[in-house]
Each structure stands twice: as structure tokens, then as C-alpha cells.
Nucleic acid binder design. Structure first.
Lengths: 203, 203
DNA sequence: AGCCTATGTTACCGACCGGTACGTCGTTCG
DNA sequence: CGAACGACGTACCGGTCGGTAACATAGGCT
């Protein structure tokens, strides 16, 4: 039996869907990221969440839409984290990037690192009409824009190109991190980024 | 291994009745690469190949093994292509890399580019015990070694690190190519590689 | 009280999944 | 010739997939 929660603060103003939907979101996020989206069935999700299938389909129209929701949440969170690091180190763009990269590198060295969930979703759903793929593309485009802004702050001669070069590095860490694990190519990302910055900012 | 049983008297060339196994291989490669492995069922493969399911299971013990075979063939081919470019431009390592990169870039600009099938397979099969994943890891390790050799030829101070930096770039092109399509970050890979080489080779 | 909303319970659907038992055909060769 | 053999197809299996219908229950609200 699932334990019943006694939630005294029951306001209808925000987030009326109290438990089930959120538990499903968390479970889906966990399972989708670790095992891949197509590899996880809805039965596994509801079991992991301690709810039942109808509860899932009351909150989400389909598995595809649940997937899109998963990507949306994770993507917005990632972009917000990026912004937070930017805000925490004002007027030091190189330091901002370093913090972000070191953080990424640390995660990429984790035993069960699985790369970027957004990129992975794009791999699993190549069809550009798929709801999950649309969200993934949106997130990636916005990240690309942020990197161009960062490259501008870094003083690049061609910021859009430095931003793209850095994006290549990021995607490289995502992929190689999950393929090679600790000790993989991701170990050089800091110095590689420095090399790119120096090259694009020198005159 | 498939049994060698071609009859010399019967076949003028291995042409007219293309063997079922080979048709299956080709179809699997086509479908797996374009749509993803988990997205393609064995029924779709045999239909596309114009054969029937038992023919598949006579040549391959399981879908997982067919997948491993697909990755093995594609990977060996890719590594051989790399070697061929190296051999075609002796004593010009930078030129070798440029040829390889320009070729990759051209493919990455294709309308339905889907990145590296090996990387994609690793994304779809995170379990390191899976036969497909094992093949993928092997191919990637060998590619990494080749890049270190190239970095050595380029005269890098720390060839293993330049090789890894270049590998990050490659994986970046694979991922961003299929996400952003033409006009994506892959457009800067040539100059980014040059920047990395210069940095790692300068003293 | 009586409703409303969110959830659980059970049972079910058709489609598709990977995989197989077994029959058939055509060639080869004693 | 005709038996043996290797290549292939027909038909089918049990399980799982995403998704749904119908009904029960429990608690908060007016």
C-alpha cells in the first residue's frame, strides 16, 4: 500500500495536481535519463512512482507528451543553472565558463554518467515532428544563443563562431563522457576551451 | 560468423540472388542508422530486405547480435576510411585531418544526417554488458588511439591530450550535426581544430 | 449532509515485439 | 531417378507495448 500523505496546506492557487503527477515526473526523469526513453515503459514508470497507469494518463495525454515534459523541465533547469553561474560571476566571463565546465567535467566523471538528456532524446527521436524532438531542438537553440552571448562577453572577434566552437566541445563532453567514462577525453575540456578562447580573441 | 558455403560452379559472380543475410545486413544498417535501433523492429527489417523473419534468425542469433554486427561493420569501415585518408596524404598530418574533417562536415550538412551510428548506439544501449555497447566501446577506443597517433604526427607536446581534444570536436560534430542540421555549430570545426592544433603544438 | 476532485482498482484492448516449429522448394549428387 | 540437403516461407507463439473503460474510495469544501 502506498502511504497516504497528510498535506495540511492545500491551496488550490498553485499546482493543484498534488502528488501523483509530480511523482510520475520524478520517476520518468530518473528512468528516462538513466536507461533511455524508449527503453522505459509506462508500466515501469508508474510502478517506480508508486502510482497506477490511469493516474499517469490523467496528468499526461501520452508517453510522448510525458517525454516532452521531461525534456522541458530538465532543459529549463539546465538553462537556469547556466544563468545562475553567469550571474554569480559578473564581469568574469572566462571564470563563468570555467565554473560551468569544471562542474560538467565532474559530472562526466561519475560512474553512471549518461551525457545530456536532451541530446540523447534527439538521438532516440530523429523525427523532427515528434513532440520530444521539438522540445529538444528548442532547448539546444537557446543554449547555443547563450554561448554566443558568453563568447561576446569574452571579447571574441567572431562571437557566434566561438560560441559554436564551445558548443562542439560541450557536446563532445556529453558523448565521450558516457562512452569513455572517467579518464576519457572530457579530461581535456578545460584547456581545450582555453585554447579556443585564446584563438578567437587574439588579434 | 556466417558459414562460408558459396558454390564456385553455381555463381559466376556473387551477384544475381543476393543472399538473404547480406540483404538483411544492408537493410538493418539503413534502418538502424536513420531511425535508431530500438525504433526498428525485426519485422520492418525483413520486410525492407524482402525476406522473412526466419531468414534473419538463421543468420543472426538475435536482434542484439544483428545490432552488434551492424556496429562492427560500420565501425570497421569508418576506421578503414580513416586509415585510407592517412595513407593517401603521407607526411602531411594536418592535411589528413583537414580532408577527414571536411568530409565529415559535408556529411553533417546533409538533410538527414544522423551523427555517428556508434555513438548513437551507445546512447540507446547504456548497459555496458550489452553486445552492441561492447562493440561500440571497442570502436571508439580504437578511434581514440588513432587520433593520438595523428596528434603525435602533428607534433603535439602532449599528443594524447590533443587527440582527446580533437575527439571532443568530432563527437561535437556528430551530435550538433543531427540536432542543428546545416548551418549548425559544425560549420566551425575546421578552424576550431586548427586552433587546438596550434595551441597544443606551440611551445 | 452532499458534492467535487484526485486517486486507486481491476480488467481489458489491439498492435506489435522478438523468436520459432515446421513445411516447401530447388539444386546437387549418388 | 530419387534421396539428401540447404535455403527459404507460412503460420504461429507468449509477452509486452501504449492506452482505456468503469467503478470504488477518500477527503475537503460549501
Amino acid at each position: 500500500m502506498t502511504k497516504r500523505n497528510s498535506n495540511p496546506a492545500r491551496s488550490q492557487t498553485c499546482e493543484a495536481p498534488k502528488r501523483a503527477a509530480e511523482r510520475i515526473r520524478e520517476s520518468a526523469r530518473d528512468l528516462f535519463y538513466r536507461q533511455g526513453i524508449r527503453a522505459v515503459g509506462v508500466d515501469e514508470i508508474v510502478t517506480h512512482a508508486g502510482v497506477t497507469k490511469p493516474s499517469l494518463y490523467r496528468s499526461f495525454p501520452s508517453k510522448d507528451e510525458l517525454t516532452a515534459d521531461y525534456l522541458r523541465h530538465m532543459g529549463e533547469e539546465g538553462l537556469a543553472r547556466f544563468d545562475a553561474i553567469i550571474a554569480a560571476n559578473p564581469s568574469d566571463p572566462r571564470g563563468q565558463l570555467r565554473v560551468w565546465l569544471r562542474d560538467l567535467q565532474k559530472k562526466a566523471n561519475g560512474k553512471d554518467y549518461r551525457g545530456c538528456g536532451t541530446t540523447n532524446a534527439a538521438v532516440e527521436y530523429p523525427d523532427r515532428g515528434h513532440p520530444a524532438r521539438k522540445v529538444a531542438s528548442d532547448i539546444k537553440n537557446r543554449f547555443r544563443t547563450k554561448l554566443v552571448a558568453l563568447a561576446t562577453a569574452l571579447g571574441a572577434k567572431t562571437p557566434d563562431r566561438l560560441g559554436d566552437a564551445l558548443l562542439l566541445l560541450f557536446e563532445g563532453v556529453y558523448a565521450s563522457g558516457q562512452i569513455f567514462g572517467a579518464g576519457g577525453p572530457a579530461r581535456v575540456v578545460l584547456e581545450a576551451a582555453d585554447a579556443l578562447i585564446d584563438s578567437y580573441c587574439s588579434q
